[in-house]
Design a protein around this nucleic acid. Structure first.
Length: 924
RNA sequence: GCGGGUGUGGUGAAAUUGGUAGACACGCUAGACUUAGGAUCUAGUGCUUCACGGCGUGGGGGUUCGAGUCCCUCCACCCGCACCA
């Protein structure tokens, strides 16, 4: 074969790998395991664009590398196949989402296979298949049957809680539960009806029904979890979201808040990612303290992290939603308060968020007593206090909190400075910590000390206690949609939720004629005919959220066909944690928290042996689109080139980037692109039509989507793989550009020419490699190995280029060298490696089964080193010196050099620095 | 506002973690071979200067024999969170 021609062999090897099940893996205890995972995609109708495979390519390279290094590598792929787009499409067209989804998956798979990924497709999972969601439902049932014991700090079987209730009632139980959990005795418990018992247990279960404020999105017709709402609108589609009280299934993720936070320290994730999770969990350590309402027996409990500043409290504020407001409002203030509360209620979430600077509030007319100072201060209501955080009551310290400061200034409330040094400052909140002043028994203490002393005092007098608060909320689990897992629950004659028995799982998603809510306002599942448990009891009509199926799929890959369990003990023991998880940062607070939560729960219950699912995560950057524009002269069919557009009155129009090459428009293709452009005329510059460009998200409507199939057609999968890595560090976002892909392609052609000459004759020779040739090879082995371990894949490609350039220059065609080069290149470019491995080198087995060559350090040892010699820190000349030269000898040699003499002249030598194998620096 | 990150040629980017700044590619320039070139090969290519040289890693300052790398300070851009008490 005379020329490198990817089309002639890439499909051939893809078929060979598939036919020979080369990527199929099984438990093999004789080998160490390695688990590489990609965040599985939602199979959208648009197919893959060139941005998607970047992470997949990186993880594929690592998988292939680890395999060559002797690991048994689990590298699966599957589909997160429940989701909104397929359902929206069903609503519009009546097409069942399962059909659309199946078609899309088939497109995705064919695109992936063309790139040559080493996935073990026999382990594929699809979250929407009943065989899979049977176990998602099963996990839901385990969560239903469990509660969280705060003493042992783990989830336990709900039966143990029942035992405790039977013996002691609610006395002495330290478990995660609803805030308003019932208090009762063992006697009470025995007297309760089944229904009453069920209601109480629901207050403890890790998945539970609750009447709660939720994010309701009318446009999508469903509630959304907090992480699915961004800036007050839905993350998908950008529709407005309202707060609404609804009965919903919830997940008690807050039980795990502290462990989810604490474990972060031992995970090998980027700081940014960990920080995002920390923020989301939002732990704050502080205390609760009681403010008695003056002339009343009501006590308000406030949460603060800065109890040291308690002497600076000049007023206390309630959230507008606080339920005691009517009782606490004096008659004189009644009207003002009601007006304010009404207004605050009507402000949308979005308003409240975007308008942070406006100060508003109202005085209740009541006063409260500071528990530590005995001072009487005003009680206010303001919407800067959130009902959902802490207790909905804030002790305001205008001298150290920005919001309190603004508020006090606005309403002319007193400000007491309690930190030394802030006495004369216009804005005392600029200094947050220091020695306490004006603070009674806290005077002279440092802020941090004062916090401890103040808490002790509060505890002593029974007016407060240390308290840790979390920002994270329990997760809403219900979705009022069709295309998701049915919740395996029915409601009995008392309307009490009951689990569908295990033997009857999966509870299949029923057929419906209409994917919209029922006329009664029930979710779409309400349209299912005769869908009842035991023909009697109605099933739960909401479905599970998108994150349910994706919260445990990494476990199912280990044992995907298991009919007896979600994963066998043996499989999960062997494959254990995911060693490398590659995916986008957009899942930082959703998927990655929920997965950790479920995994931790399954660990607590003894089903799996590891607490954290993903030891190492690498977030690949986004590939942005690069849109092109043409400029039509208004009212004509004339298009003016980018550089000349200023001379005309033009309208920029998107043009398909696939008919533009390096910003130059293919005018012929442009005329064919659309009917109305068929007789377009062009005003050219330098004989070319140049387009404008802008970097933005890849999307169909912007005509900037580049399909990997197109790149593969022209350059081949190996070039695509190498090029996507060559573009830069994997974590970095960058616009897609084809500039430079030629360089990678040329590299593969050069590589090819080490094996075949222009006439297509094999030129590989059998001779013994020279030390020089071995050196070229081994420094590449070293570099490639290190890079693949650290995922610096962008620098590996140049290392290969240098290697091939040097071998070509040395006219080295020796089998001994080329054979090993093919092995180390094969993770990046498996097709060309396999082709040459068989056709040029005559191997029978696949290169995938080879071993990664051992790097031999002794081959890189040199007799001499070229030292850069600097005079006063400026590099002036390079001198070859023997490796083992002493400082004295080096000095002699350096000063004998003409160039050095010229620079030094007769100036006195101040210093002579000699760093072996590095540098010489002369200071004059 | 808080937190995280990034700033290096015309472009994408390297730099053994304090030791020759710009590897490797794209692009560009010149030449060779060619009927032809969006093929291939050779040479050049940070800026500046005829040259010797000088200047160069967002700006300013510092530590050091030596700083893209460490410290201080300021600026710009990107990402995340945001009345969280």
């Amino acid at each position: 074969m005379s020329e490198y021609n990817h089309n002639s062999f890439e499909p051939k090897w893809q078929k060979y790998w598939q036919d020979n099940n080369i990527y199929k893996v099984d438990i093999d205890k004789s080998k160490p395991k390695y688990y590489t995972l990609d965040m599985f995609p939602y199979p959208s109708g648009a197919g893959l664009h060139v941005g998607h495979p970047m992470g997949y390519i990186a993880s594929d390279i690592v998988s292939r590398y680890k395999r060559l290094k002797g690991f048994n590598v689990l590298h699966p792929m599957g589909f997160d196949s429940f989701g909104l787009p397929a359902e929206q499409y069903a609503i519009e067209t009546g097409q069942h989402p399962a059909i659309t989804t199946e078609q899309n998956i088939s497109t995705f798979k064919s695109q992936m296979n063309k790139i040559g990924f080493s996935f073990d497709w026999s382990r594929e999972v699809q979250t929407s298949s009943p065989e899979y969601y049977r176990w998602t439902q099963w996990i839901f049932e385990q969560l239903f049957n469990a509660y969280y014991d705060k003493d042992e700090n783990k989830a336990k079987d709900i039966a143990e809680l029942v035992k405790h209730f039977e013996a002691n009632g609610s006395e002495g139980i330290n478990a995660e539960c609803d805030d308003d959990a019932t208090v009762f005795t063992a006697e009470d418990w025995k007297g309760y009806s089944d229904n009453e018992k069920a209601t109480i247990l629901l207050q403890y279960r890790l998945t539970f029904l609750s009447e709660a404020m939720v994010n309701w999105c009318p446009a999508l017709g469903t509630v959304l979890a907090n992480d699915e709402v961004k800036d007050g609108v839905s993350e998908r589609g950008g529709h407005p979201v309202e707060r609404k009280k609804m009965k919903q299934w919830m997940m008690r993720i807050t039980a795990y808040a502290d462990r989810l936070l604490g474990n972060l320290d031992r995970l090998d994730w980027s700081d940014a990612l960990k920080e995002m999770q920390r923020n989301w969990i939002g732990k704050s350590i502080g205390c609760e303290l009681d403010f008695k309402v003056a002339d009343s027996d009501i006590t308000l409990t406030a949460f603060t992290t800065r109890v040291d500043t308690v002497y600076g409290v000049t007023y206390v504020v309630l959230a507008p939603e606080h339920e005691l407001i009517p009782t606490l409002t004096t008659d004189a203030q009644k009207e003002a308060v009601e007006t304010y509360v009404e207004e605050a209620k009507n402000r949308s979430e979005r308003d409240r968020q975007s308008d942070v600077k406006t100060v508003s509030g109202v005085f209740t007319g009541s006063y409260v007593i500071n528990p530590l100072t005995g001072e009487k201060v005003q009680l206010w209501i303001a919407d800067y206090v959130l009902s959902g955080y802490g207790t909905g009551v804030v002790m305001a310290v205008p001298s150290s909190d920005d919001r309190d400061f603004r508020f006090a200034n606005h309403f002319d409330l007193p400000i007491i400075r309690v930190i030394e040094g802030t006495e004369d400052m216009e804005d005392p909140t600029q200094v947050k910590k220091g020695k306490m002043i004006n603070s009674g028994f806290l005077n002279g203490l440092d802020s941090d000390e004062a916090i401890k002393v103040a808490i002790d005092k509060l505890v002593e007098s029974g007016q407060g206690k240390a308290k840790v608060n979390f920002r994270i909320r329990d997760a809403v689990f219900s979705r009022q949609r069709y295309w998701g897992e049915p919740v395996p629950v029915y409601f009995d004659e008392n309307d009490s939720p009951q689990l569908v028995p295990d033997q009857q799982l999966p509870l299949n998603l029923p057929e419906v004629e209409n994917y919209l809510p029922t006329p009664e306002g029930d979710p779409p599942l309400g349209n299912a005919k005769d869908w009842k448990f035991d023909d009697k009891f109605g099933y739960e009509l909401t479905t599970m959220p998108g994150w349910a199926g994706s919260s445990w799929y990494f476990l199912r890959y280990m044992d995907p066909q298991n009919k007896e369990a979600f994963v066998s003990k043996e499989a999960v023991e062997y494959w254990n944690q995911v060693d490398l998880y590659v995916g986008g940062t957009e899942h930082a607070t959703g998927h990655l928290l929920y997965s950790r939560f479920w995994n931790m729960f399954l660990f607590d219950m003894g089903f799996i042996g590891h607490e954290e699912p993903f030891q190492r995560i690498v977030n690949q950057g986004m590939i942005q689109g690069r849109s092109n524009f043409v400029y039509r002269v208004k009212g004509t069919n004339q298009f003016v080139s980018y550089g000349l557009r200023k001379d005309y009155d033009v309208q920029p129009l998107y043009v398909d980037v696939n008919i533009v090459n390096n910003d130059e428009l293919d005018t012929e293709k442009f005329k064919e692109w659309r009917k109305d452009y068929a007789d377009a005329e062009f005003i050219l510059e330098d004989g070319k039509y140049m387009c404008g460009h802008v970097v933005e998200k890849m999307s169909k409507s912007k005509y900037n989507v580049v399909n990997p199939d197109v790149v593969i057609e022209k350059y081949g999968a190996d070039t695509l793989r190498l090029y996507e890595m060559f573009l830069g560090p994997i974590e970095q976002s960058k616009p897609w550009s084809m500039q430079g892909i030629d360089g990678v392609w040329k590299f593969l052609r050069k590589m090819w020419r080490l094996f075949y000459n222009d006439q297509g004759q094999l030129v590989v020779t059998d001779g013994k490699a020279t030390p020089e040739e071995l050196k070229i090879l081994h420094k590449t082995i070293k570099k490639a190995g290190e890079d693949m371990e650290s995922l610096s894949l962008n620098t590996t490609v140049p290392a290969f280029m240098v290697c091939v350039n040097e071998l070509a220059a040395a006219k080295c065609h020796k089998k001994e060298v080329l054979e090993q080069l093919l092995v180390i290149l094969s993770p990046f470019a498996p097709h060309i490696a396999e082709e040459l491995w068989h056709e040029a080198l005559g191997h029978e087995d696949s290169v995938i089964l080879a071993s990664f060559p051992e790097f031999d350090a002794s081959l890189l040892v040199e007799a001499s080193h070229t030292y850069p010699v600097s005079i006063n820190g400026k590099m002036r000349v390079k001198i070859d010196l023997p490796m083992d030269i002493s400082q004295e000898e080096a000095k002699e040699a350096v000063f004998a050099n003409e160039v050095v003499k010229k620079w030094v002249e007769d100036k006195p030598i101040k210093k002579f620095i000699f760093v072996p194998k590095r540098i010489v620096n002369v200071v004059v």
